[in-house]
Computed example of a mutant assay.
Amino acid sequence: MHLFDLGYIEEPFIGLCQDYPDSTVYPIENFRIEWGPIFHRGRLDGSARVLLIGQDPAQNEAIVRRILVGEAGQRIQGFLAKLGIDRSYVMINTFLYSVYGNVPAKIKKSAAIADYRHRWLKALLTTQPIEAVVTMGVLADEAWKTWAATPDGRNFSALQVMIPHPTKPESASDGDKQKLRDETQKMLSQWNTALQTLHTAIKHPDQEQPLILYGDTWQPGDKVAIPDFDFPPGLPAWMRESDNWARRVGKDLTAKRRNITLTVPKGVVPKP
């Protein structure tokens, strides 16, 4: 049996996917508009208990058309599993398109970008029984605070917790192995604090279970494969279970914008 995500089959989500901002709102010099918008991952059927807000889609997401499906997604899937949540979640990003370089402050504060994001937040928070909101990283936290200051946002009262982005250790260590270990330990400690708060706040987990916190380093089972029911039909299992199968390639930055190379992992294709 191959389960899959039914997609955007009801309002208000149909309308959100029909009417989204383009390069007149997201400048092409700051975003990879050429790969299109990536909207969400998770439940839209009225069953989501946890809302997660990420940053922006990467190359894996451009191919499978769902957010948080690479290393970051598998780490956050493990985070949810510790809370007994293996299905009842929904995720959106701060930005609809992949960031190219750095995002200027004026773009971060763009009313047009925020307005569309607020439409998604309103749709989710009025159709799903959300018990907790998790923001991943500074950009996501700023996006939530912007929403929380709106009239609709002020009417929402569930717990909100910020955690470091799942791949912050890699981005902060810049290839230094000792710094990577230190940053990983620091992040997992912060995640543990958030888990203890969330474990109390989430009243209807998918699985009732004791909370087992992270250690100082990643352990077997901390990273969890993303379930097939989060993806469009027909997606191969290796796109859910591994990372780095999609890479931006090219001799210069322009070429890398135009090319994503896909590689089936070793072991999937039998040797002749």
Rank of each mutant, 00 (worst) to 15 (best):
G250M: 09
E183K: 13
P104R: 09
H40Y: 02
L3G: 05
L3N: 09
A105W: 06
G36F: 03
P166E: 03
M162F: 02
A201R: 07
S242F: 02
P151L: 09
G36L: 05
A143I: 07
M91Y: 03
H40T: 12
W238F: 07
P272D: 14
A62S: 15
P169G: 01
Q207N: 12
T184E: 12
R248A: 15
D152A: 14
D45G: 01
I226S: 14
S242E: 09
P232S: 13
P232E: 13
S110T: 04
K256E: 13
L6H: 11
A172R: 11
A255V: 07
L16I: 02
K109M: 11
L51W: 14
Y100P: 03
T146W: 05
T167E: 12
K109A: 15
I212L: 15
D152T: 06
Q74G: 04
K145L: 15
G78H: 13
V25S: 00
M239Q: 15
V99I: 15
L198I: 04
A246Q: 09
W35A: 06
K266M: 11
I226R: 13
Y214F: 15
I202L: 08
N155P: 00
I63A: 00
E208Q: 12
P220K: 01
G215T: 07
K82I: 02
A123R: 02
S242M: 09
F156K: 10
H165Y: 11
F79S: 12
I9L: 12
W245A: 08
V25P: 00
P220H: 01
A237T: 12
Q185M: 11
K122D: 14
I107M: 02
W144T: 11
V90R: 11
Y20A: 00
Q59P: 05
G250N: 09
W245Q: 10
S242L: 09
D230T: 10
N60Q: 15
L235H: 04
P151D: 09
S88D: 14
G215P: 06
L124K: 01
T127A: 02
K82G: 05
D216K: 14
V90P: 10
Q18C: 01
I85T: 03
V64L: 12
A111N: 08
P37R: 05
K186R: 15
H40W: 01
P129T: 10
D152C: 07
T167I: 10
R240W: 05
I92A: 04
R43V: 03
E241Y: 02
Y20F: 15
Y8W: 04
M239W: 08
L180V: 01
A140T: 09
A237G: 04
F95Q: 08
L159K: 10
Q128F: 08
L211I: 04
T94A: 03
E170K: 04
F31V: 07
T126R: 11
M136C: 15
L262A: 10
I92K: 06
